[in-house]
Amino acid sequence: MNVLIDVDSWLRAAAGGLLIGLAAAVMIVFNGRIAGVSGVLGGLMLDGNGGDRRWRSMFLGGMVLGAVLLTTLVTALPAGRLQTDWLGMAIAGLIVGYGTRMGSGCTSGHGVCGIARLSTRSITATITFMAFGTLTVFVIRHLLGAAS
């Protein structure tokens, strides 16, 4: 194993994590809800509950705006590096949507909120998707040799 040491990126990561934690805190303390992105999105698109749409749209719209404001006003970030082609993105999106809906959450709901709630389901889910994410990257990069 080769570990990249980049303290500046660790500090940014920690600062970003604090903001994410704060976001989840605002959502639960004021609105009493879990800031789980797949759950908020799925609820908006599929569960069709009228009064519910507003806060879900505000949250998701805020996420888009928050990222744009940060990169334009606070700090320039390197462009994201895509890891796969159009077909790969389409398939990955489909699997992520299906999986998060089936598994009741993603990195935010299970990871950031569920672990903090000491939920056995969330801790199990987080270990599972981390393990399968790692395994998938291993297969793609090191077994199939699509290393960039």
Binding site: I20, A24, F59, L65, G66, L70
Partner: peptide, 15 residues
């Protein structure tokens, strides 16, 4: 919800 979303998006990008 908007405040939470703004913080969330900024945090994901910064992180």
């Amino acid at each position: 919800s908007l405040v939470s979303g703004l913080l969330f998006g900024a945090g994901l990008a910064l992180g």
